[in-house]
Amino acid sequence: MKTKLYNILNKPYAVVLVMLIAPLFGFIDRNFVFFFGLGIAFLLLKGSKFEWARFGIGQRISGKTLVRSLLLALALFTLFYVIIDPILQLWLGDFDLSSINDIRGNFGGYVALMIIMWVFAAFGEEFLFRGYYMKGLAELLGNSNKAWILAALMTSLYFGISHAYQGLIGAVSAFLWSFAISLIFTKNKNNLLLLVLIHGIYDSIGITLIYLNKDHLILEWVQQLF
C-alpha cells in the first residue's frame, strides 16, 4: 500500500493534483492547506530514502551561503519594507496582523514566534513551495528556463493566495515577494538552504520590528514623502 501510494505521488503530474486538493482543507482550517502539502512532500522525501537533492537541498550551508543570504535578505527587506509595501499600503490599506499582534512587547511570544517562523515559514514554506511545488512544476513543464519562470509565477500566485488572511495587501505583497525569491531559486536550483536563510532572516527583521512596535515607522515616512 505504501509503495503504491509513493508511486502515485511520484508521478510528474501529482504535484498539480496536490496543489488542487490542498486548498480544500482550508474549509477546515487554513493551516491544514499548508500541512497537507508539507505532509505529501515529506512522504515523497521518505519514499526516496531521504534524497534531499530532489527538493533542491544539494549543498550544505557554507560561509559563502551565509554571506549571500544576509545580503540578499537585506536587499529584499529594503525593496519591500521601504519601497513596495509602503506604496501598496497607500492603495490597499494596512496588513491584517491580527494573528501575531500579541507579540508586541511580549518577549515570550516573540521568542516562540521566532522559533515557529524558522521551522515552519523559513524551512517549511521553502521546502514546500520552492522545493516541491515550484521544482515539481518546472520539471513537469519541461525543465527549461521558461518552464522555471512559469513555475515561479504559478507558485507565487499560489503562495500569495495562501497569505490572503493578511488581507488583499498581504496576498499581493506575498505574491511579489515569492516571485522575487523564486527567481533567486532559478539561479540556485541546488541550494534551497540559501532561500531558507533568506526567508528566515527577512522574517526575523519583520517580526522584531513588530515586537518593538516599530513596523509602522517606515510607512509614516513614505506617507510624508507623498
Rank of each mutant, 00 (worst) to 15 (best):
K214V: 03
I84G: 02
V16D: 06
G206R: 09
I161G: 03
R130V: 02
S69I: 05
I184Q: 13
I40P: 00
S162Q: 10
G108H: 06
I21G: 02
V119S: 06
F36S: 03
G170S: 03
A151T: 01
E125Y: 01
Y81T: 08
G206D: 03
M154L: 15
N7M: 09
K46L: 14
L219K: 15
Q224K: 14
F95D: 10
K64E: 13
L225I: 15
G160Y: 04
W148T: 03
L195I: 14
L168H: 03
T155V: 12
A121D: 09
D215G: 06
F175M: 12
I100Y: 11
D215P: 02
N191S: 12
M114Q: 14
I103P: 07
G47P: 07
S156R: 03
F127D: 00
I210N: 06
A22E: 07
H199M: 05
Y133W: 13
S99G: 06
Q89H: 08
W118Q: 13
L209K: 10
L150V: 15
K135N: 15
L76P: 00
Y165K: 09
F129Y: 15
K187P: 06
Y110I: 09
L9V: 03
G160A: 03
L72N: 07
Y110D: 10
I207D: 05
A41Y: 05
M117S: 11
L76H: 05
Q166R: 12
A164F: 13
